[in-house]
Design a protein around this nucleic acid. Structure first.
Lengths: 212, 212
DNA sequence: CTTGAAATCCCTCTTTCGGGTGAGCGCCGA
DNA sequence: TCGGCGCTCACCCGAAAGAGGGATTTCAAG
């Protein structure tokens, strides 16, 4: 029934142990071949260009170049690239960003692990692979109020603890405008103050904590 | 020279892929035997009580029961337990908490992976295993100003976006007192306002984002 | 016993936040 | 063409936050 064609796979994750775990899992499938590894987004892009794997497993949240950006570049170079995101649950925003960047599947690291293989096979059949739990959060974001570019920029500065006045001068706008934006942000995120806005934005993956 | 004695190991991590990766790495050592797995702190405690492994590899940041608490309980039941923390870099506070809870080693998931085996062997010799990068952060915390219990409790409420008045009623103290605490917190963390205090506290591992 | 840190409370003063309300401009899709 | 949305700015006002001061008790360590 099934034709024996080897499926080449590229693993991208900044954690050695995770890469090793994936190798171990994928080894069990006779027709799977891990053709390369990458420890960050940049490596993933160059490795994909060189190896042209059938499927690329991609972590989000990596140094040097984030997973979303890597997905975008890989898909730009090869629109047929099949990319499976393997991520901690970063939040609605990350899921949406990864999928709209061109990822075909989204797996959670918490998942039991027996989903990796079927996910890859699903992608090989040209089908998406979005687990229920992930799809739910996607829907909640879809029906929800997302922040505009400007608002996301403001949130990024809120995370740094900047006052409205400082945000204003940083963006070259009036403090009044900043207050308007903050007001809209609080309403959209349904929070009471800027501090809660920050934690909600972090949990929903709208922004991330600055590195170290 | 080396006596062939099997070293029994318990793996604790909530991510299946990580557990699989560790199994794969540990398999390469003939005298290593993985005797069990745990997916959270509670499982780790019961598994340790049952299996009495020579070494326990422990992730921090797990559901149900955090790694630090698990370490504490395991060491309470078995003061000779050797525990090796394998963690993302959570921040100074987590490192210190884990070590003072009784962990004998601290590995970063970013590390190249060839450190797992020597770390375990080091623990078997009764020696600690603290990498340079980790030790540096430990020192920076040591020479630093840590928050008191009460202050940490306040920060936990700051993360939720609570106002001083609400924090006061939640803790059964006066708003004035809360303001005093907040003032001290800002000074100790060297930040300007409560919002920045939250992000700094998160980065330093003093508190964590509430689950979903 | 003394010292010190932690936790509690109090007062004043200035700045910042956030709510309410309104308005002009540009762009895009119906 | 028109409405909606994003971005911009404005004014008012009450509440909250933060910067200054001090003050007390408790409790453990030196």
């Amino acid at each position: 029934m099934s034709i024996e064609i080897s499926i080449s796979i590229l693993i991208t994750d900044d954690h050695f142990v995770v890469r090793e775990g994936l190798r171990s899992i994928l080894r069990r499938e006779p027709d799977f071949t891990v053709v390369g590894e990458a420890a960050n987004g940049l490596e993933a892009v160059t490795a994909h260009a060189r190896l042209r794997p059938d499927v690329t497993i991609m972590d989000l949240r990596m140094p040097v170049c984030g997973g979303v950006e890597a997905i975008r570049r890989i898909r730009a170079a090869d629109p047929a690239a099949r990319i499976l995101v393997l991520s901690n649950f970063e939040g609605d925003e990350d899921i949406h960003a990864a999928l709209s960047a061109g990822a075909m599947g989204y797996l959670l690291k918490h998942s039991s692990g027996d989903q990796v293989t079927p996910a890859i096979r699903s992608l090989m059949l040209g089908k998406r692979w979005i687990p229920q739990e992930v799809a739910g959060h996607l829907a909640s974001r879809e029906r929800g109020e997302i922040l505009s570019d400007r608002e996301r920029e403001i949130v990024r500065l809120l995370v740094l603890g900047e006052a409205n006045k400082q945000i204003a001068s940083a963006l070259g706008i009036t403090e009044q405008t900043v207050k308007s934006h903050v007001k809209n942000i609080l309403a959209k995120l349904q929070v009471r103050d800027r501090t809660e806005a920050v934690t909600v934005a972090l949990r929903r993956g709208i922004v991330h904590l600055p590195e170290v």
